[in-house]
Design a protein around this nucleic acid. Structure first.
Lengths: 187, 187
DNA sequence: GGGCACATGTAAGCTGTTACATGATTAA
DNA sequence: TTAATCATGTAACAGCTTACATGTGCCC
């Protein structure tokens, strides 16, 4: 109970890589896990306080207003392993793009085309990002043991992004059959 | 304000296909949009009441305890178009599988393998479902105009599922390199 | 006549975001 | 010296789920 759920996992996980401040935990989650996870300050600080109370993290440096880094303890590592082994909590899906396309009849082909083009551009941007991260990881000498796992999640993103691109292309073609784009003659 | 956001869109969208009870709206969302959307009773009934107050839906049949179907009105259709044209509200990502794999070093190769196998089985189950729905849609004579759009969302699911399968296979192979499965000799 | 699916609604409570308040440190 | 960034925390609120209360109609 209390401060349940996966925020604890994410925070302990971040600290398992290296000790850092609460602020840095948020940045790490945003920048590194950002493609599949998110936490806000409003979650992180209370969670850190609770983890400190339970002895799963230790505060190093002054405790107030001045930057204090948090380090995971032995019991914290054990707790992390325990949390990771817990069954995955499915989040109810909420895909705004699909919702709009499903009711695309009301939205019209032109607006749907925009949505698809946007989705495609987004997927391509993400793909480029993943490939950059992948290169970076392969050159990184530290975290050798973690790297294999990190590469898996990056690869998942890349697969998903490529799938999104292919789907967008296919759907755009289908849309052209319903409503040929202007300047293509014939109707 | 009030009853903001996309619940209104989903409910109006469902009623745009055909009039139905609140109970049926929930079932439709669960069964038809279930792969990319979800709503609970606690959201649907207040939203329907609000939509009725605003004249976007009309209640047909007795108004209490006995089944009353809701039908979308002209203003409701206009409202739906307006809502669909609104920019997509991104939901903060929360992928429990990726979170676990990212910290896979603490979880161990064996547990990661289980997660991947589960994810793969899940993706294959979903893919089969999508192909069944696709066939069903192609045979359906009604909703001819909607069908093109509905097929797009089904196809998105299929693309994603295939990508997930391929990724799982690739990751399982990578895992075997770190930690060869038992019964393969050599260590 | 008992159980199940259909149907409507409310209330409690949890999770998480946003905005705010506050202050230290660093770079221009 | 002022602006930006780093840093910590809280409070208000939004959104959503779950559980509960209540009742009807149908089928075995």
């Amino acid at each position: 109970m209390a401060r349940a759920s996966q925020t604890e996992t994410a925070v302990l996980g971040a600290l398992s890589v290296m000790p850092m401040t609460g602020y840095a935990v948020r940045e790490a989650i945003r920048d590194v896990l950002g493609h599949f996870w998110s936490e806000s300050f409003g979650q992180i600080y209370p969670t850190l306080a609770e983890l400190e109370r339970q002895g799963h993290v230790r505060r190093q440096g002054s405790n107030r207003t001045r930057s204090s880094t948090f380090a995971i303890t032995t019991s914290g590592t054990a707790r992390l392993k325990q949390l990771l082994a817990q069954p995955i909590q499915p989040v109810p899906p909420r895909n705004g793009l699909m919702l709009r396309l499903f009711f695309g009849r009301h939205l019209g082909p032109e607006a749907c085309r925009s949505l698809l083009l946007e989705a495609k551009a987004d997927a391509e941007r993400r793909l480029a990002e993943y490939e950059a991260i992948r290169k970076e990881l392969l050159e990184d000498q530290d975290h050798a043991e973690d790297r294999r796992y990190w590469l898996m999640t990056v690869s998942a993103g890349a697969h998903t992004a490529r799938a999104a691109t292919a789907w967008a292309d296919e759907s755009l073609a289908a849309l052209d059959e319903i409503d040929p784009p202007r300047g293509m003659g014939e109707r």
